[in-house]
């Protein structure tokens, strides 16, 4: 399923809403999650999962082509942990 298919499903279930409003609703939800993580916040959606930010320490990496050592700065990466209910559903429980 891709974003446009998700929007279509929500639109089909809500015939009283304009398609463009459904688009805004779906986009707002994803945008809000990204904005929260960009601030360093967590987003916890019980039963679904939690989005959080993990810190990766600075390290000395290597250019795989030349083998040269390169400084890699500390950085923050997005992380998702599946919620218990969804994990159980994936396994048919």
């Amino acid at each position: 399923m891709i974003r446009s298919e998700l929007i279509q499903k929500i639109a089909d279930e809500n015939p009283h809403l304009y398609q463009r409003d459904v688009e805004r609703i779906v986009n707002t939800i994803f945008e809000e999650i990204v904005e929260a993580m960009a601030r360093g916040d967590r987003v916890e959606l019980r039963g679904f999962g939690a989005f959080s930010v993990k810190k990766r320490d600075a390290r000395v990496g290597r250019n795989p082509r030349t083998g040269d050592a390169v400084e890699v700065e500390e950085k923050h990466v997005p992380f998702f942990k599946t919620g218990k209910l969804l994990r159980d559903r994936l396994n048919g429980k």
């Binding site: 609703i25 707002t28 939800i29 809000e32 360093g40 967590r42 987003v43 959606l45 019980r46």
Partner: peptide, 15 residues
Amino acid sequence: MSGKTLTRMDLSEAV
């Protein structure tokens, strides 16, 4: 990092 936790409520508030 502010370290807040958002929930469904914050998402529905945004909508």
